[in-house]
Simulated assay, not measured.
Amino acid sequence: MKCPFCGNADTQVKDSRTSEDGAAIRRRRACPDCGGRFTTFERVQLRELSVMKRSGRRTPFDRDKLARSVQVALRKRPVEAERIERMVSGIVRQLESLGESEIKSEQIGELVMEGLKSLDDVAYVRFASVYRNFREAKDFENIIGELAQDEDK
């Protein structure tokens, strides 16, 4: 693994532990040249996924981009980082288990909406407002009405 501080290609693993419910390995590394310490994570990837955008463009699936969008929706909300990571890992596993290498961005968005709905209502509404491109206050009223109906059930 290349050192992020000095670029040395030969770094040493100082400690390895499982994390994220055993879905990843966390490695603590040190650079013998500059003495810098950093952490890396290894995850199992079942298949290469690509995302088909609404515009028709294809891009490689980026787990970090998915995690960032979820974290933006959950910013300043009382949800533990571990629950967020579990949700993101669950979405990735669902996508990989579909058996397809190309996934529509709409599928990913719907899985995120489903996950956020169970984590935090405010984050769900935030994400929905961007994902569904809300244009007026009535759009917010509609989604909040849907949430209220689900809670009544």
Rank of each mutant, 00 (worst) to 15 (best):
M1W: 08
M1I: 13
K2N: 09
C3V: 04
C3I: 06
P4M: 07
P4E: 03
A9M: 13
D10Y: 04
T11D: 01
T11G: 02
Q12S: 12
Q12I: 15
V13W: 04
K14W: 09
S16W: 08
S19D: 13
S19K: 13
E20D: 12
G22Y: 06
R27M: 07
R27H: 03
R28V: 08
R28H: 11
R29Y: 04
A30I: 14
A30N: 12
C31M: 07
P32C: 09
P32D: 12
D33H: 07
D33F: 10
D33G: 06
C34K: 03
G36Q: 14
R37T: 13
T39V: 14
T40M: 03
E42T: 05
E42S: 01
E42H: 03
R47A: 12
E48D: 15
E48R: 13
E48Q: 14
L49K: 06
S50V: 15
V51Y: 08
M52Q: 10
S55A: 06
S55H: 03
S55N: 11
G56T: 06
G56Q: 05
R58W: 06
T59I: 15
T59K: 11
T59C: 13
P60Y: 08
P60S: 14
F61M: 09
D62N: 15
D62F: 05
D62H: 10
D64H: 08
L66N: 04
R68Q: 12
S69L: 04
V70S: 01
Q71M: 11
V72Y: 08
A73T: 05
L74E: 00
R75G: 04
R75E: 14
K76N: 11
R77T: 07
R77W: 05
P78E: 07
P78Q: 05
V79N: 09
E80G: 06
E82L: 13
R86K: 15
R86D: 06
M87T: 13
M87H: 07
G90V: 02
G90T: 01
G90A: 06
I91T: 03
Q94W: 10
L95Y: 01
E96M: 08
E96Y: 09
E96Q: 13
S97I: 00
S97V: 01
S97C: 09
L98R: 15
G99F: 09
G99P: 05
G99V: 08
G99D: 07
S101N: 13
S101E: 15
E102W: 11
E102P: 01
K104N: 10
Q107T: 15
I108K: 04
I108T: 06
G109K: 05
G109Q: 04
E110N: 14
V112H: 01
M113D: 00
E114F: 05
K117H: 15
D120Y: 00
D121Y: 07
Y124V: 03
Y124P: 02
Y124L: 07
V125I: 12
R126G: 02
R126Q: 10
V130E: 04
V130G: 00
R132L: 11
R132N: 02
N133R: 15
N133E: 14
R135P: 00
K138L: 12
D139E: 08
F140W: 12
F140V: 15
F140Y: 13
N142E: 10
N142T: 13
G145N: 11
G145E: 09
A148V: 03
A148E: 12
A148D: 11
E151G: 10
E151C: 09
